[in-house]
């Protein structure tokens, strides 16, 4: 269908249609992702069980008071930790590998079934409910941030080599040199506690007011490094020949900047930006735990503190999956921005 409507049928024969190439590419990349995910899984598994024995996990879950050895055995049995870690010498054939903690806990993840956390909750369900809050902070931060950073960088580029530019860069470096913790502590203190503008922390149904502060703080925290980076990209573009040509055509500085520079700076910007989009789901560890936002970031922190292996492993898996998705998205976005780029 695609071919029939194309103006030059000959070209069709040489390169397969775009959407078929795309599907082939996607399949190849997904196959490529499998060994990576297996590697990630092995690594987390190894790291975790070098530290913890299943007994430790049981004790962690069972609390301090009056924990008997029987209770520990029972807990391990109930949660499937009563098997050997990697290789089951007692079993025969394929069961040597499948009847182990590693296999039993990992295999199902590849179909996105994360099983139950060590305290008995359904992890997939938890992830689904927590994704919303995470996104409601991360997405506005990302989008508004992108707009603000790029405009700020454009402004600095527009005024390059003037006092405004120098002041801007200095401001960026200053902002970069402050630890993210200070932004959060300071923001809560000033905006929440002194000025009573928004709730200090919390998260409510459809609450715009809960989202404002974390988003503002998130944006301010990233302004330094991002704006500076975009500025560097724009400056590099503006030094190129086509910009000189455009100027010679009599385009105003603003037109040059917005029409030509911004468009051509797209590829380097996309490299850095698209890869993080899927990771927005994971939320932010610091922001979420400070503001009491029930997202995936605070889930992860809690799991680390509680040494809940099932959750940590699920989050690592999810993180890697989203990262790989980000890489693929980046490649695809190149072809959309610049048709000369071919997927290979």
């Amino acid at each position: 269908m695609y071919c029939a409507s194309a103006r030059t049928p000959a070209a069709c024969k040489i390169t397969p249609p775009y959407n078929i190439r795309m599907i082939a590419y996607l399949i190849r990349r997904l196959l490529y992702a499998l060994p990576i995910l297996i590697g990630v899984n092995l690594l987390t598994f190894a790291l975790f069980f070098v530290v913890n024995t299943p007994d430790d996990m049981a004790r962690m879950q069972l609390g301090v008071k009056r924990v008997t050895p029987e209770a520990i055995v029972l807990w391990k049995q109930q949660h499937g930790y009563d098997k050997p870690l990697m290789i089951n010498h007692a079993a025969a054939g394929a069961k040597q590998f499948t009847n182990t903690i590693f296999w039993q806990k990992s295999a199902s993840m590849f179909v996105l079934d994360f099983g139950y956390s060590d305290d008995g909750r359904n992890i997939s369900r938890e992830i689904v409910t927590r994704m919303g809050p995470s996104l409601s902070i991360a997405l506005p931060t990302f989008l508004a941030g992108l707009v603000i950073y790029v405009s700020f960088a454009l402004l600095m580029t527009l005024f390059r080599a003037t006092a405004l530019d120098i002041a801007g860069v200095t401001l960026c470096v200053m902002l970069m040199s402050i630890s993210g913790l200070f932004y959060i502590i300071g923001g809560q203190f000033l905006i929440g506690k002194l000025w009573h503008l928004v709730p200090v922390s919390g998260y409510g149904g459809g609450g715009f007011k809960f989202v404002v502060l974390p988003v503002v703080i998130g944006i301010i925290g990233g302004i330094g490094s991002s704006s500076r980076w975009y500025r560097a990209i724009f400056l590099e573009e503006i030094g190129r020949d086509y910009v000189r040509t455009a100027r010679a055509k009599g385009l105003s500085e603003l037109q040059v900047l917005f029409i030509h520079v911004l468009k051509n700076a797209m590829i380097p910007i996309l490299t850095g930006v698209v890869v993080v989009i899927p990771l927005l789901f994971m939320g932010s560890l610091l922001t979420e735990s400070f503001f009491g936002i029930p997202g995936l970031g605070s889930y992860t922190i809690d799991a680390i503190n509680a040494q809940d292996f099932s959750v940590v492993r699920a989050m690592v898996f999810l993180g890697s999956l989203l990262y790989i998705a980000g890489l693929i998205l980046t490649d695809i976005s190149y072809t959309l921005v610049d048709p000369r780029v071919r997927l290979s």
Partner: peptide
């Protein structure tokens, strides 16, 4: 490439946390 994709695809805080706990033991 495989090694560094695996390493960089794990959220770094998690990787660090796991490694630090291991070291502590």
């Amino acid at each position: 490439q495989y090694v560094y994709t695996v390493l960089s695809s794990i959220p770094s805080v998690l990787l660090i946390a796991a490694a630090v706990l291991m070291m502590q033991v």
